[in-house]
Nucleic acid binder design. Sequence first.
DNA 1: AGCACGATTAACT
DNA 2: GTTAATCGTGCTC
Length: 198
Amino acid sequence: MISTAHLNREFFNRSTLIVARELLGMRLVRVENEVRLSGIITETEAYIGEADLGCHAHVGLTPRTQVMYGSPGHAYVYFTYGMHWCLNFVTEPEGFPAAVLIRAIYPIEGLEIIASRRAPQPRRLWTNGPAKITKAINIHRPHNGLDLCNPNAEIYVEAGQLIADLSVTMSPRVGLNSVPEPWRSIPWRFRVTELFTA
DNA sequence: AGCACGATTAACT
DNA sequence: GTTAATCGTGCTC
């Protein structure tokens, strides 16, 4: 059986690259009106500190970026392109701004609700993008700053299956088209290529 | 107060 | 491959 343990704060209080890699195969859970919506995390990206010009925190501490400067294990939820929300998990010790963007999940629970919110898209396109996930499982502004390690949180992560290195591909992060090198091309995107094979 | 742009998506040629 | 949609954010005036 899959463990149902919530990941604790020490999981997130580590190198962002390690957290981004290890989140692959774990289960993102959204509890909405006592109903579980969930999926296996299959794609992440790391955003690490003010020096990373692809990271929102490169502008320093502002109202938008303050959650990233806070304690690890919290949700950083931001709004972009005038219509989309994206979910991140804050990493590393308090005071150092970093987070992991959740880019894709494989839906497991709440399939009917997810389907209704993502209609008329086919199943394989339900949650294969950061703003598709937040639309599918209803995550937006009120969740910014939420503590993922609170046992009663509406959003949290459960330990799941281990993903072998053989099944993980690292590549440049998506959408950083005007970000200077080396940040534009540094391979901080982690993707599961074969979810159910060894 | 005004401006340029964005860690995206869906629809279109 | 291209592009519209749509508005918060951070910067300049």
